[in-house]
Design a protein around this nucleic acid. Structure first.
Length: 605
RNA sequence: GCCGGGGUAGCUCAACGGUAGAGCAAUCGCUUCGUAAGCGAUAGGUUGUGGGUUCGAAUCCCAUCUCCGGCUCCA
């Protein structure tokens, strides 16, 4: 039972005084109290599980009642009454038979099923007030500590997380130790909505999805296309400087290619169906670029001296993602991946892997990503269907990836069951605006496809040997990266990524000609400039430019024209006057190249 | 794909069985203005689509497409 160390009045304490252990207990206890309230209010509701999760809790119910958010006030009210009833949480060990009798008598079939799995282990019941749950514990001392909670949403969830099982109704809630923490969290959720790339992408005219074209098939509007082409040029130039060779390969291929690679067997249901051509050959849209790059490798006989061979491509591919998983630009059916396959000697694996990890860190620094972590994604050894069955190969690959991680000196978490079917990976995880973890970069070690495609190189002694493949993506797909950048910057892109970098706002019609001249000079200097010559008040033009999140506004009026200098306004509200055109171009060019987020050449706000 | 909730003008939303409306945006006038919304007028919709119930459907029912919150999946 968890007793909070500092028993300060909850209202005045801050989050730092509450341990994760306490918060978990609070949230788990809140789940129990919610289950009690729900069972009281909606007779016939059966309980299953209700754990604490990050920032809150949920409970999965099987109920004749269809829960909606309209039920929440009623449930919350009852929860409050229960919590204020000053009920202690009591744990009690029970025998298997006793527990089984108890849950069977109540018709709680999910609890009985959980219980069956616990046979032979210690079994405990936790009770508060009139409610009893089969639970391993981790609760508050008393329900009265539960004060700051809110129910958030109701959703479907498969029993035991298996889509073959029936779907239960899950109610999510959030719970905190203090009122301030709860309010802070609710505010964060509100703010996250404003950063959502689907909302900002629409407002800022970056991309659009047309129902006529189809779900998951985004259109890149001119402004989004600017960002994408910057990303593409950035990564291609960087990779070329590191010895990658960029290629182009077709997005269509004979289905046999994917049968040989194993993708057809593993992912057929997520591939667009084969197209028949004159009733003979069958073509598929590629769901992956690897086999194409393998064919490029096989186009030549390679000496060990040629390796490592780093074949890269902004490869466009098509996956029939299930309808329910599509989301804006982050989960789509047509995507272009910053892909590369490194064909190397076995003793080059480590240096190639460490170089790739360093490249990832270099790129993240350029984009200002700080909140990321490395995940060593391993197979589930019990699953012989999903993963290639070759334990020795897996052990070796895992060991090599761990060595690379420790050489680069980054910490990582291991995750079983997250590997690719052909080998383990290092995934780099970042959080989106709503706190969901997403994979951006990945590095996959593969001994399997070289085998399937019988890849070889000629070794020193003239013998044919098998190369190893490293699959890696740094900036992910252009779609996902763009979605991520929108949320990361909340649409306030640094200068180098801004679709429009400078907007010239004229005060009166008299400034039209100097404004056009200025725009021309900026464009000639390689800066992305545009004009606002509308017959609007300057306040309105500024407002519109602010809403477009344009980094630099040039307010051009009679005084500026007379003085032959410029008045500048930044989107953060900063202003500068009397700047010469030359100075502006010089500083913006510098800022553009530095990739900095906040311009430093003007006085801080 | 599954569970639940939504699709009304370019965008954000109202009307919830009785003639489909507002703000912003757009267009046209007037206004020529110094750091986040000047004024007026005009135009804009088979209420996602297809069926059904009804004297009458945006509203109720069925199917379907699509979006959102989750679940499952993610080479």
């Amino acid at each position: 039972m968890i007793k909070e160390k500092s028993q300060k009045p909850a209202e005045s304490s801050s989050s730092e005084t509450h341990s994760q252990e306490f918060l978990d207990a609070l949230r788990h206890s809140c789940a129990h109290v919610m289950a009690q309230a729900v069972q009281e209010l909606f007779p016939g509701t059966k309980i299953s599980i209700g754990p604490a999760i990050e920032n809150g809790f949920y409970y999965d119910f099987d109920s004749p009642h269809r829960f909606t958010e309209e039920d929440f006030p009623k449930v919350e009210k009852r929860m409050r009454e229960i919590a204020q009833g000053n009920h202690p949480f009591k744990g009690q060990e029970v025998s298997f038979e006793e527990a089984k009798k108890f849950w069977e008598a109540r018709g709680e079939k999910y609890k009985v099923e959980i219980l069956e799995g616990l046979k032979g282990q210690k079994i405990t019941h936790y009770c508060h007030d009139s409610y009893t749950d089969l639970c391993r514990g981790g609760h508050l001392e008393n329900t009265k500590l539960l004060r700051h909670f809110k129910l958030l949403s109701v959703a479907g969830a498969y029993w035991r997380g298996d889509e073959k099982n029936p779907m239960l109704q899950r109610i999510y809630g959030t719970a905190w130790a203090t009122k301030e923490d709860l309010e802070k969290h609710l505010k964060m959720l509100e703010e996250a909505k404003a950063r959502d790339h689907r909302k900002l992408g629409t407002e800022l005219r970056l991309f659009a999805i047309s129902e006529k074209i189809g779900p998951g098939l985004p259109l890149w509007l001119p402004k989004g296309a600017v960002i994408r082409s910057i990303l593409e040029r950035y990564i291609v130039d960087l990779e070329r400087s590191l010895g990658y060779q960029h290629v182009y390969s077709p997005a269509l291929a004979r289905v046999e290619l994917y049968k040989q690679s194993g993708h057809w067997d593993h992912f057929k249901e997520n591939m667009y169906p084969a197209m028949q051509f004159e009733n003979k050959e069958e073509l598929v849209l590629r769901p992956m670029n690897c086999p194409h790059h393998i064919m490029i490798y096989k186009n030549d006989l390679h000496s060990y001296r040629d390796l490592p061979l780093r074949i890269a491509e902004l490869g466009t591919m098509y996956r029939y993602e299930r309808s329910g998983v599509l989301s804006g630009l982050s989960r789509v059916r047509a995507m272009t991946l910053n892909d590369a396959h490194i064909f190397c000697l076995p003793d080059q694996i480590r240096s190639e892997a460490t170089a790739t990890l360093r490249l990832i860190e270099r790129v993240y620094k350029d984009f200002g990503f700080k909140n990321y972590w490395f995940r060593l994604s391993l197979r589930d050894p019990a699953d012989k269907i999903k993963y290639v069955d070759n334990p020795a190969m897996w052990d070796k690959a895992e060991r090599l990836l761990k060595e690379a991680l420790s050489e680069v000196g980054v910490s990582f978490k291991e995750a079983a069951g997250e590997a690719a079917y052909y080998g383990p990976k290092i995934d780099v995880q970042l959080h989106d605006a709503l706190g969901h973890s997403e994979t951006l970069s990945t590095l996959q070690l593969d001994f399997y496809l070289p085998e399937r495609f019988d890849l070889e190189y000629v070794d020193k002694d003239g013998a044919r040997e098998r190369p190893v493949m490293i699959h890696r993506g740094i900036v992910s797909t252009m779609e996902r990266m763009t979605a991520f950048l929108i949320e990361h910057y909340a649409g306030n892109f640094p200068l180098w990524l801004s679709p429009v970098q400078v907007k010239i706002l004229t005060l009166t019609d008299a400034e039209e000609s100097p404004a056009r001249a200025l725009e021309e000079h900026l464009l000639a200097a390689g800066l992305r400039a545009s004009l606002d010559l509308r017959a609007e008040k300057i306040g309105a033009k500024i407002r519109d430019a602010q809403l477009e999140k344009i980094p630099y506004m040039i307010i051009l009026g009679p005084k500026d024209v007379a003085a032959k200098t410029l008045s500048i306004r930044l989107r953060d509200g900063r202003q500068a006057h009397g700047i010469s055109e030359e100075k502006l171009i010089q500083e913006l060019t510098r800022e553009n190249a530095s990739k900095t987020l906040s311009p430093t050449w003007l006085d801080p706000k």
